[in-house]
Amino acid sequence: MSLLEVSALKKVYSTRFGGNKVEALRDINFRVEQGEYVAIMGESGSGKTTLLNILAALDRPTSGRVILDGKDMSKIKESAVATYRRNNLGFVFQDFNLLDTFTLADNIYLPLVLAGRSYKEMHDRLAPIATTLGIQKLLNKYPYEVSGGEKQRAAVARALITDPKLILADEPTGALDSRSSDELLRLFSEVNRIGQTILMVTHSINAASTAGRVLFIKDGVVFHQLYRGNSTNEQFYQKISDTMVLLATGRNRG
């Protein structure tokens, strides 16, 4: 059974007075297996943000189903959604969303504190993650005292510390310079190799080329998908790039 199963997902936004209806997602179908690293690409307005919001349980679909680890997310009660999110999903945002009132360590602890875990447990969990991400020395600093790349690594640590079934990353390299981006993508690959399932939404071909599979979304449907197979990052980059060109010209024709 797949870890994540998205079938016939549809989302229609209507304007306030019910006049115009905008179909953000028409019919999305895909599966993510345990341990996969999937990138979702698409241009602005293609519906990827809407998709991610639904996957994150921040929004509800108009119709269709999202099943995570055998549990239908649309059946979760509104009151339990936050807890569900906390226990099953990890988030990495484009603008880090670290809280400037907390040190990096406290930022990373936040989801566990909300879950009511003991300090000792949190502390024990953090140690290996911090080592993997190379932020052991930064833990007592505040977000405004460290660089963007370091902030994002702390954000990844915050996503990992709950041991989530799925990490949702929204343009994680969007606010980083190229060196920090490469470093982060390397970490993503490494975390994935240990067995962490990652779903990343991105514009960046460079970022997508580190994934195992890339889904292309256009006009609310999954338009195409590419598997890495045995190709290197560079080869995969080329494939993705070609597909993007195809997508763009396809739009011009259609």
Binding site: A56, L58, S79, A82, T83, Y84, R85, R86, N87, L89, F91, F93, N97, L99, T101, L110, P111, L114, A115, R158
Partner: peptide, 15 residues
């Protein structure tokens, strides 16, 4: 914005 982030991470209204 802080509480917004925290709600995304999984803070409930009750919390």
């Amino acid at each position: 914005p802080r509480f917004e982030t925290m709600q995304k991470i999984g803070m409930t209204k009750n919390e």
